[in-house]
């Protein structure tokens, strides 16, 4: 509540304008929410209701058949497990590499830091291309191994810049000097002092890398051949996008039912695959915002 003196009465034009803004934002929210609500509603409706188009906003004939179908699909379960392993492994590697690279670049008297900055910024400007990158992975013998998922995208320049900015602003040079006076080595300082002070930035980096890995399919598609290694997103692609809807040789009623169920399962599958991201979303939202702000500070 501001004092009466401070407020100048809003003109009627301004009130109209403000109303328009509220309408615009409300419409935007509806447009963004509708597909999400629809997918969730369809996923917990009966197969017949979805196929016949009865579901348009709220669930019709509540049923969990779609979810049962998803959890009975061994490919999906395997993909889910693979994706969890890839995400954990990749995130650990990526955060580790990012921290040990970004921390030195944040130190004031670290000789060569501008060289290293240019060294990584060049990689943002010049891109070798898909095929040369593929050939490198091939030459290293990583094709069709989990390493092809864990290593080639293990560092992102943007994340390095974010981490460097954080270390630069929150680990004062005096602290480093004091620790050196006490005879603490750089690595011990990094491990025992910097890391505990950097929990927020570690969370930002981990979330960014984890969401990236959980959601990516393309590297898996070009580097992996063995189905046992496929991450969830690749299984999703097979089931949701590539797979044709043709049924096997069953009688027509049975076939129709199978098809309805397969159709319904797609909705449930979308929901199931998004659950891990949904769980971390409340934290992720906060930390992603923080990360974006750190990155935009000109270093």
């Amino acid at each position: 509540m501001s004092s009466k003196q401070g407020t100048i009465k809003e003109s009627s034009n301004d009130r109209v304008f403000l109303t328009l803004i509220y309408i615009f934002l409300s419409l935007l929210m509806i447009v963004i929410l509708y597909p999400l609500v629809y997918i969730v509603s369809a996923s917990i409706s009966s197969p017949e209701a979805v196929t016949s188009g009865q579901v348009w906003l709220w669930p019709v004939d509540f049923s969990l058949e779609g979810y049962i179908e998803v959890f009975n699909n061994s490919d999906v379960i395997r993909g889910f497990r693979n994706s969890i392993l890839y995400t954990i492994g990749y995130t650990l590697i990526a955060v580790f590499l990012t921290v040990i690279f970004a921390y030195p670049l944040s130190r004031k008297n670290f000789y060569g830091k501008s060289f290293f900055m240019i060294f990584i910024l060049i990689t943002m400007l010049f891109y070798g291309g898909l095929i040369p990158e593929y050939l490198v992975v091939q030459q290293l013998g990583m094709l069709d191994t989990p390493w092809a998922i864990l290593i080639p995208k293990a560092m992102a320049v943007w994340q390095i810049i974010i981490a460097r900015t954080f270390f630069y602003t929150s680990i004062p040079e005096e602290l480093v000097e004091a620790s050196e006076m006490d005879g603490c080595s750089s690595i011990r300082f990094l491990w025992h002092v910097v890391l505990p002070l950097s929990k927020p930035i570690i969370a930002v980096l981990a979330l960014m890398y984890a969401v990236f890995q959980w959601n990516s399919y393309f590297d898996a598609m070009i580097f992996l051949r063995t189905e046992e290694l496929f991450p969830l997103q690749l299984e999703l692609r097979e089931i949701l996008i590539t797979q044709s809807e043709s049924g096997a040789n069953q009688d027509i009623a049975e076939q129709q039912k199978r098809q309805q169920l397969a159709n319904l399962m797609q909705y449930s599958l979308i929901v199931v695959s998004s659950i891990p991201v949904l769980i971390i979303y409340p934290f992720a939202q906060k930390y992603f915002v923080k990360g974006m702000l750190l990155g935009s500070v000109k270093g």
């Binding site: 590499l97 990012t98 040990i100 690279f101 921390y103 030195p104 130190r107 008297n109 670290f110 000789y111 290293f116 060294f119 990584i120 990689t123 010049f126 891109y127 070798g128 291309g129 040369p132 990158e133 050939l135 490198v136 290293l140 290593i151 080639p152 293990a154 560092m155 050196e180 080595s185 750089s186 690595i187 990094l190």
Partner: peptide, 28 residues
């Protein structure tokens, strides 16, 4: 002299950039 441990730590990330970013540039 002061940061030699940090320089050693940086070898791994630098190798990463050379192998996965610079080699493909030359590979082009």
């Amino acid at each position: 002299q002061r940061h030699w441990q940090l320089y050693i730590l940086m070898i791994l990330p630098v190798l990463y950039f050379i192998i996965f970013k610079y080699v493909p540039m030359l590979g082009a």
